[in-house]
Design a protein around this nucleic acid. Structure first.
Length: 477
RNA sequence: GGCGGCGUACCCAAGUGGCAAGGGGGAGGUCUGCAAAACCUUUAUCCAGCGGUUCGAAUCCGCUCGCCGCCUCCA
């Protein structure tokens, strides 16, 4: 609300109530929807990791003009459309490692709560019915505009031509809309109709999180009017502060412009997952701070893929080391690595405590990656060396766990890459060629060995000769 | 027009007034049958520009330029 970073002080110590605006289920989701979901998934995971008991509510708007339009176009009932795209949404989110919210309410399951809320607002004089509609009277709520930092006069000056002359002011917004012929409807004290968009969040958040709660999130485009209107409705009704912390994620851009339905410059999650591994997409979304705009491009996705590959290459080295390390007590120069290890958690927490700075947190992860590689290059052995490496693995897993990335085995990562890159090569055929090449290498037939390596590289597989055999990986990037 | 944000190397990107993280790329090197991976060195005397505050500013203030967003449905 202050527009600045603030320390998190929950209403109930140790707990956090978080409401995040989900989607309107009228079409498939694009990357922008994914960003919002991933960002708040991380926020929830981190708060839990730090010991907060988080109640996460994420709504689905399943009744609205766009849904009705789509249903009419397709000649089906509105709930068929809503159900279809809700399912698509959950499928996309699961791919991206977004966990389910604790409560995922649909608007249409809360018509009664909404009607009660609207009745309350009318009783208190903040809303008025006209015909079958009910509007919220903005002029009755003096704080209107406090979140978006707009003032009512400016809004009035900029108001577009108003079609509905029954409204007392162009700024007044609908709490309840009477239904037109052929539209879905619910019975209400004002006749047959359906709820306005903003009221569901007020009714459902108070039902599940109380009249006042800690965090309310969503995309930056929801600040006005959606969240402003929620504040007006909620605080008018209860007289209490609605939300302590408002958090809004920035946009995905394409050629610097906001990715959006209306501009038509969007990429659906499904399209992107045709070309990129889901973890790549999630990682990409974490490489910038959540409030900054992030430019969507193949170059950036490819770099993300390379970064992840670097991570898994190191995991492979760690695994190889732990399996083959000798007993000879030669711990080598571990001081530097130990230094990084001992400060890693603090740095990671510090980054995440600072408004969930995932980009900075990733930086620390790669700093640790470099140090452990350096240490492994020194060819250490013995128990001390193993302990240090085990500690490294544990810390990497912990950080990756919070961000819900880096949690595959390298084998899973390469198989997944193989699939998404549609390699014209089965794992069996690949292993056969590696065996062929090994034979050639034993014969010191370097020409043949190199030819096989080249052949596989052209198919998208890279070979790395190690002391005890050859490793393969799918060429990233 | 009102309100808000952004501008850091070849690209992406973090940066809480005190020697400019991290990733990708480039150049050189170590290792290797040759590679790859990994590591090392190097690639911003400087953070859009100009002023100001300060012992000290990418970080605070002012102005200028450029880009973007919200003000209408929108993650």
């Amino acid at each position: 609300m202050s527009g600045k970073k603030e320390d998190f002080v929950p209403i109930i110590p140790g707990q956090a109530g978080m409401y995040v605006c989900g989607i309107t289920a009228y079409d498939v989701c694009h990357l922008g929807h994914a960003r919002s979901a991933v960002v708040f998934d991380i926020i929830k995971r981190y708060l839990r990791y730090r010991g907060f008991k988080v109640t996460h509510v994420r709504n689905i708007t399943d009744i609205d003009d766009k849904i009705i339009n789509r249903a009419q176009k397709e000649g089906v009932s509105y709930d068929v459309v809503a159900k279809k795209y809700t399912e698509e949404y959950y499928r996309d989110m699961e791919m991206l490692g977004v966990s389910r919210a604790d409560i995922e309410p649909n608007a249409t399951d809360h018509i009664k709560e909404m009607i009660d809320t609207i009745k309350g607002l009318i009783d208190k004089g903040y809303a008025y019915p006209v015909g079958g509609d009910v509007y919220f009277e903005v002029s009755k709520f003096p704080d209107y505009g406090k979140l978006s930092k707009k003032n009512v006069d400016d809004l009035m000056a900029g108001a577009r031509v108003e079609v509905d002359e029954r409204k007392r002011s162009p700024l007044d917004f609908a709490l309840w809309k009477s239904s037109k012929e052929g539209e879905p409807w619910w019975e209400s004290p004002w006749g047959k109709g359906r709820p306005g968009w903003h009221i569901e969040c007020t009714a459902m958040s108070s039902k599940y999180l109380g009249e006042s709660f800690d965090i309310h999130g969503g995309g930056a485009d929801l600040i006005f009017p959606h969240h402003e209107n929620e504040i007006a409705q909620s605080e008018a009704l209860t007289g209490k502060q609605f939300v302590t912390y408002w958090m809004h994620n920035g946009f995905i851009t394409v050629d610097k412009e906001k990715m959006s339905k209306s501009l038509g410059n969007f990429f659906t999650i499904k399209e992107i997952l045709e070309k990129y591994e889901p973890e790549v997409v999630r990682y990409f979304l974490l490489t910038s701070h959540y409030r900054s705009p992030i430019e969507f491009s193949d170059v950036q996705l490819t770099e993300s893929e390379l970064s992840i590959d670097r991570y898994y290459s190191t995991v492979t080295r760690i695994k190889d080391f732990l399996e083959t390390a000798g007993a000879a007590d030669k711990p080598g120069a571990y001081a530097e690595l130990e230094k990084i290890l001992s400060s890693f958690k603090d740095k990671f927490h510090h980054a995440m405590n600072d408004d969930f700075n995932t980009a900075s947190a990733l930086g620390f992860i790669f700093e640790l990656i470099r140090e452990v590689n350096k240490y492994l290059d020194s060819k250490p052995s013995g128990q001390k060396a193993k302990d240090v490496i085990l500690k490294t693995r544990e810390l990497l897993a912990e950080a990756g766990g919070v961000l819900n990335i880096f949690n595959k085995t390298p084998e899973e990562w390469y198989r997944s890459l193989m699939k998404v890159k549609k390699l014209d090569l089965s794992e069996e055929a690949l292993l056969r060629r590696i065996a062929d090449r090994q034979e050639a290498r034993v014969q010191k037939d370097w020409a043949k060995a190199d030819a096989i390596r080249k052949e596989l590289e052209e198919k998208g597989v890279l070979l790395e000769d190690k002391k005890d055999g050859t490793r393969w990986k799918v060429k990233a990037g």
